[in-house]
Nucleic acid binder design. Sequence first.
DNA 1: CGCCTATGTTGACACCCGTCGATACGGGTG
DNA 2: CACCCGTATCGACGGGTGTCAACATAGGCG
Lengths: 121, 121
Amino acid sequence: MSKSEVVELPVLDAGAVVPCCPPITAGELSQADAERMAAMFKALSDPVRLRLFSRVASHPGGEACVCDISDVGVSQPTVSHHLKKLREAGLLTSERRGTWVYYQVAPSVLAAMSAMLDLRT
Amino acid sequence: MSKSEVVELPVLDAGAVVPCCPPITAGELSQADAERMAAMFKALSDPVRLRLFSRVASHPGGEACVCDISDVGVSQPTVSHHLKKLREAGLLTSERRGTWVYYQVAPSVLAAMSAMLDLRT
DNA sequence: CGCCTATGTTGACACCCGTCGATACGGGTG
DNA sequence: CACCCGTATCGACGGGTGTCAACATAGGCG
């Protein structure tokens, strides 16, 4: 809490070459892998978070200002709450530039998700 | 409730050719699409459910008896509860054969998940 | 027919989660 | 410096969720 750094679940190592988990169809998941994958799916298991994530992901340049994506039908604190969840799950990163805060899709997130689903080629 | 048929969220139309939702990165998700995708992710957002699903998915023949997958560290009623959730989400189907009940991955589920992640080749 | 095994359902409990209003903080701008 | 705007945090509230023990149901078998 004293640090602004958030303790994140190791869902994704931002710079890692190896995806976080084996494909979901490749065999029985270990407890640890299941927990990592569950944390990621949990972060995407809310419609508001899903819309926020898709808005960031589909934004030109791969980043979006909070002010550009916050009209999702809930209050501003709630938007902030959901963005925090997505950050803590390792799906988004944020950066303050002057007055505004920009969110980006964390690198390798989509690749990691693909790996989970066994989508080679 | 009187019928054994469960009222399912329209996450996946089992026989549908068209996947349930547009790719997550293709643009801003509509409210309805976000809710469908969220329901699916929510079903996979629990480690126990994820392990059950992966055990069914990785089982030879694409189906597994409950008795073969229930040792995931929770009680039998809890296993049954999670399998029900996966059924209601449209991810698994079940079929009773004599004494045992077999679960299968619902057709097109993996394809639909792939579509969400925009994984064409 | 009565029992035994496999699976599902019920009810209770503790805990987590999404939401909001109020408030705090950070940083331009006049 | 004082104000205002954009964003984050706090505290509270209502509803949802995972878990279990107890019980119910279904089907095979003696």
